[in-house]
Computed example of a mutant assay.
Amino acid sequence: MQAIVFDDFGGPEVLVPRDLPIPEVRPHDLMVRNAAIGVNRADLLHRKGAYGRAYFGDADTMGLEIAGTVVALGPQVQGFAVGDRVMGIVGGGAYAELSRIDHRMAMHVPQGLDLVEAGAVAEVFVTAHEALFHLAGLRAGESVLIHAAAGGVGSAAVQLAHAAGARVFATASGDKRDAVLGFGADVCIDYRSEDFQTVVAQATEGKGVDVVIDFVGAPYLEANVRSLAVGGRMVCVGLLGGAANASLPMDAVLYRHLKIFGTVMKSRTPEVKQAMVQRFAKQWLAALEAGTIRPVIDRRFALADAAQAHQHMESGANIGKILLLPAGTER
């Protein structure tokens, strides 16, 4: 089967297509012929060497999410059959024509959702649900500030928060404002020309927001904390701006009774990731089927063009997900 590999860490150019053996089906596995493969920022970090040559449970090749058709299954699989349309999260090995996935991290693709579009669901929506609801405990009537709202996880988080009845503040570049408002944001803040802490303070009459979902890290830490209301919760999902030289205003943390969480999916145990997938599926698969929430796709690349897909993600121009499509998949 064709897969994408790299022999040395480096830029997008290190990614090359190569024929690899089809992986063995283990007792709990589905073997899936991929129709679409999601590209994630964790893939960029993997390619650059951030995780070393770590093995995350399914393959040492890169890639975290897939959608496709089941072609074989292990003897302990329950709830799935050959021919089923599935989507889900893998511990590596997504960048290939065929991938194995533990059936406890797979979901049936809802009726009415295109199989290729389903490749843009699992990683971003599961991550967004985990941050907003499982960790931050966002409730209807509360307010939330979501950074990087035009990206994959950000666009999913805006949709979920809006569907849950929250007031949504979102940051993005001004050229992406209309898209972010279309996802369900009530207020879109241009991070290039506006100060989000000032906008939030003015819009909430100084109260602040109940929840912050952050992907930027150190440069936003102090302003994020000072944007939180009493009893507010912040979840750090990424470090796009780096981790060094962060300033944490301890007075705000102490006197406003704040909570700060960090979350990352790639290095979690299989049991934790299975629980994350199942929590999302229980609450939101019906909404996907109804079209209340939807995957947002920016561009589709052939699997062999993975290097170009990584270049596009690194440019920061994307709105929503970038997908890789194996040969033979309709683009």
Rank of each mutant, 00 (worst) to 15 (best):
L181V: 11
V121T: 02
V90P: 07
T329N: 04
M62R: 09
G83D: 01
P110S: 08
L323T: 12
L285F: 07
R294H: 14
N224C: 11
L254Y: 13
G316L: 01
Q308I: 01
V153L: 11
L254K: 04
A94S: 03
A72S: 15
L181K: 15
G151Y: 08
C188R: 02
S155C: 09
G74R: 10
D305G: 06
H129R: 11
T171N: 00
L239Q: 12
V225Q: 08
P295T: 14
K176E: 01
E271P: 02
D43M: 07
S99T: 14
G10P: 03
G184T: 04
G141L: 09
P23R: 06
L135Y: 04
V216Y: 08
G154W: 08
T61D: 04
A327V: 08
A170Q: 13
R192E: 05
D102P: 00
G238Q: 12
H129W: 15
G182V: 03
V90A: 10
V237D: 03
G63A: 15
A50Q: 07
G238Y: 13
R279K: 11
I101F: 01
P326S: 14
E24W: 02
A275I: 05
L44R: 04
L145G: 08
P219L: 09
P17G: 14
R177V: 09
E142G: 10
A149L: 06
Q308T: 10
L288A: 04
A287H: 13
G10C: 06
A131G: 15
A157S: 10
R85Y: 06
V168T: 02
A140F: 09
D251L: 12
A59K: 03
R104M: 06
G241K: 05
L228P: 01
Q278I: 02
G49S: 08
K176Q: 05
N40H: 13
G151M: 06
M31W: 07
V211M: 06
A161C: 10
E97C: 08
R104K: 13
E13R: 10
D178K: 08
G208I: 07
F183T: 11
